[in-house]
Simulated assay, not measured.
Amino acid sequence: MKVAEPLELRHTDRAMTRAVTPHAESTILTDSQGIIAGETTIPSQGEQLPAYLAKPVSGDGPYLIILVVQEIFGVHQHIQDVCRRLAKQGYLAIAPELYFRQGDPHQYDDIPTLLSELVSKVPDAQVLLDLDRATNWAVRQGGDANKIGITGFCWGGRISWLYAAHNPQLKAAVAWYGKFSGNKTLTTPKHPMDIAADLSAPVLGLYGAEDGSIPLDQVELMRQALRAANATAEIVVYPEAGHAFHADYRPSYHQASAQDGWQRMLAWFAQYGVK
């Protein structure tokens, strides 16, 4: 039996990023009954990477690992809630604060400033390495190194595609409305469209037909790239959903699409060995 390292968790109420307004009445709050959940830190590249962890109380593991990748707004209440929902499904869910070296997204009052002053300065290479460190740490907390999945939203959806081409240990990925292409910079040298041939894990993409930031012609181009690469991947487009349709704390939330996407995500993980 694997013995997990001692784990210290802090229980705090992480507020929503100020740039997110208004908040919707549809916000879901998942309790911690039957799970262990809280904030912690992970040694990474000589620093302490803040993270939120949720896992079942019962059982000694090894637990199935799901990396949860934040939106542009950081690991706020909604991302923490997603971790708790996954823990109630039996997963060890870990959401690292992937901007922590560059700044705190919770301190920004508007999205354009958040994007230009913080998000644009976060290198993909740094993010992928931090996700590696989070994965290794999760294994030491009782996670199963052979059953690792990833899911992410918006900014995190794009990262989920990239991570599926980065970590050969990954079993499956689910990307929620992550952009397929964009400007290539020193911090973002490649985008999902560029790495379709490099995917080493099956990827499910969940997108909205009404998403003005990811037009349907981009979805079709990505599908073509995946077919050309003979990649194991599927993209589902919800006709009535826009961007951030899973974000129940925002007016963009589309309940039917979000609930269907959640079930598809769980089925995808189960189909490809994270079950």
Score class of each variant (00 low, 15 high):
209 A>F: 03
196 A>P: 01
233 A>Y: 05
213 S>A: 06
198 D>V: 00
217 D>I: 04
224 Q>R: 11
231 A>S: 15
203 V>F: 06
201 A>H: 07
215 P>V: 08
218 Q>F: 01
232 T>W: 05
220 E>F: 05
204 L>P: 01
196 A>G: 00
232 T>I: 15
201 A>Y: 05
202 P>R: 07
200 S>Y: 02
217 D>Q: 11
224 Q>I: 13
209 A>K: 14
200 S>D: 01
220 E>H: 07
199 L>P: 10
221 L>M: 09
198 D>N: 12
223 R>V: 03
208 G>M: 11
213 S>Y: 09
233 A>K: 09
212 G>E: 13
196 A>F: 01
200 S>V: 14
225 A>D: 03
225 A>C: 04
196 A>K: 02
200 S>T: 15
221 L>V: 00
221 L>S: 11
210 E>V: 01
202 P>T: 07
227 R>T: 07
199 L>H: 09
232 T>S: 15
205 G>A: 03
231 A>F: 09
200 S>N: 14
212 G>V: 02
205 G>M: 05
196 A>Q: 04
202 P>V: 05
230 N>D: 12
227 R>S: 13
215 P>W: 10
199 L>I: 12
217 D>L: 02
208 G>K: 06
210 E>G: 03
226 L>A: 05
217 D>K: 10
200 S>G: 15
200 S>I: 09
221 L>D: 13
202 P>F: 04
204 L>N: 04
223 R>N: 15
203 V>S: 11
202 P>K: 08
203 V>C: 06
231 A>P: 11
204 L>Y: 10
203 V>H: 13
225 A>Q: 10
227 R>Q: 13
208 G>Y: 09
207 Y>T: 03
208 G>F: 11
221 L>Y: 00
198 D>A: 07
226 L>G: 10
228 A>H: 11
215 P>K: 11
221 L>R: 14
222 M>A: 06
208 G>H: 13
206 L>T: 00
213 S>G: 13
233 A>R: 11
201 A>V: 04
230 N>T: 07
204 L>E: 07
213 S>R: 04
200 S>F: 01
220 E>M: 10
201 A>M: 04
204 L>S: 01
224 Q>P: 00
215 P>M: 08
218 Q>I: 01
220 E>Y: 06
225 A>P: 02
205 G>E: 06
228 A>G: 13
197 A>C: 07
229 A>N: 03
212 G>D: 13
222 M>V: 00
198 D>G: 04
200 S>P: 01
228 A>W: 00
216 L>R: 11
202 P>Q: 06
208 G>N: 11
211 D>R: 04
218 Q>L: 14
227 R>Y: 02
206 L>N: 07
229 A>S: 13
232 T>D: 15
220 E>R: 10
219 V>C: 01
221 L>N: 09
225 A>N: 02
227 R>H: 07
218 Q>N: 08
210 E>I: 06
210 E>Y: 00
210 E>Q: 15
209 A>I: 02
222 M>I: 00
222 M>T: 00
233 A>H: 05
201 A>G: 07
206 L>Y: 04
210 E>W: 04
217 D>F: 08
202 P>D: 08
228 A>S: 09
229 A>K: 08
225 A>M: 05
220 E>V: 14
210 E>C: 13
204 L>R: 06
212 G>S: 05
208 G>T: 06
218 Q>V: 01
231 A>Q: 14
205 G>T: 03
206 L>H: 02
207 Y>D: 10
217 D>T: 08
221 L>A: 15
